[in-house]
Amino acid sequence: MATPKEMMSTWDKIQFGAILPSFENPEKKLKSKFNSFNYKVADWRVEKPVFNRELCIDCDFCWVSCPDSCFLVEEVENKRGKKQAKIVGINYDLCKGCGVCVDVCPTPIKSLLMFPEFTEIDEALNQWPTKDNK
């Protein structure tokens, strides 16, 4: 069988029954270039969500309801020694700017807010609403 590289050379050389391996090395979970993880959908969005780590309570609602799996999760141990997920950021290559994460965020002052695409993250964090000014 032809390798995916050969099949990709021109459109008329595409063969029937193409196989796209998503891992270069399945044991080490090394993603191959065919994995859509490497594809960028960032140009779809008009507004981007900005994540404020200080207000986050790690409920992980945004992780479970993100349709594009763009929340970066770090595994940490809690006080009882159980593993738990800590949200550390957003993968802006995969985010399409739907805003579901902002909608489900349960904190009184939301720890995720939508800002126009061109806003710098530091600038957005400075504009964050405070308790008196929600």
Binding site: S22, K29, K31, N35, S36, F37, N38, Y39, K40, V41, W44, R45, D58, C59, D60, F61, W63, V64, S65, C66, P67, D68, S69, C70, V73, E75, N78, K82, K83, Q84, A85, N91, D93, L94, K96, G97, C98, G99, V100
Partner: peptide
Amino acid sequence: NLKEFACTPDRFQGGHRLCPGCAHGMIVRE
């Protein structure tokens, strides 16, 4: 709880071209 569930390595990657806000991605990942 969700904190443990979120530690699962994802087997469905982002970068697909479903519409923004499509629920298919959420269901399939779960």
